[in-house]
Amino acid sequence: MEIKTFEDLIDWTRQLHAHLARCLHDAAEKHGNERASALMDYVASHETLLAKAVAEFEKQADPKVLKTRLYDYQTHKPFTPGAACDPRLTTMSFDDIAKEVFTFHDEIMELYKTLIGKAEIEGAKTLLEDLLSLEQHHAMQLSSQIGRMNDL
């Protein structure tokens, strides 16, 4: 997916979260470790909710901001809907799964931070800050829950 506008960016983010949810759900069913499987199921449900929350930004954001072009978009791995899931998920440890999930979220947050620093239109900057806040809030929730699961 080529990202040209803020609308594309939001859609790309939504698709990434939905894809991660599907991959984790599918891998959880195949994983031999009950604890790792439970983690993947939890994160999958969390990612599904996050994908829906991101989709709301597309519905509620100013249409002019959504159509604003992103000229400073950094090169990130393009995402193709229907992309294959990482087969390693079915064999990863609890800690490796958690690390992978947080790396995923960190990359998205870092992208938003970079774009905030380059945003010249106030509405675009506000939209990015709101998206970043959503990602940060969900990452903190995940961290808290994963920490509790790890304590068990």
Rank of each mutant, 00 (worst) to 15 (best):
E2W: 05
K4A: 02
K4R: 09
F6G: 07
E7I: 00
L9A: 02
I10E: 14
D11C: 03
D11S: 08
T13S: 13
R14F: 07
Q15I: 01
Q15L: 09
Q15D: 04
Q15N: 02
H17P: 01
A18C: 12
L20S: 11
L20P: 00
A21C: 09
H25V: 03
D26P: 05
E29W: 14
K30M: 01
N33C: 10
N33H: 13
E34W: 14
L39Q: 15
H46K: 09
T48I: 08
L49N: 15
A51P: 05
K52S: 07
V54H: 10
A55P: 01
A55S: 10
Q60L: 03
L66K: 13
K67P: 02
T68W: 04
R69S: 07
L70G: 01
L70C: 01
Y71V: 00
D72A: 04
H76F: 08
F79V: 00
T80I: 06
T80P: 01
P81L: 04
A84W: 04
P87T: 05
R88K: 14
L89A: 10
T90V: 08
T90I: 13
T91H: 06
T91A: 00
M92R: 14
F94P: 11
F94W: 11
F94V: 02
D96N: 12
I97A: 14
A98E: 02
F102P: 01
F104A: 06
I108F: 07
I108V: 10
M109K: 15
M109T: 08
Y112N: 09
K113Q: 04
T114H: 10
L115G: 06
A119S: 11
E120W: 06
I121G: 04
E122L: 09
E122V: 08
G123W: 06
K125E: 13
T126L: 13
D130M: 02
D130C: 01
L132Q: 09
S133D: 04
L134W: 07
Q136G: 11
H137R: 14
H137Y: 14
H138D: 13
A139L: 06
M140P: 01
L142T: 02
L142C: 08
S143P: 00
S143D: 03
S144C: 07
S144V: 02
S144T: 03
R148N: 11
M149S: 09
M149L: 10
N150C: 03
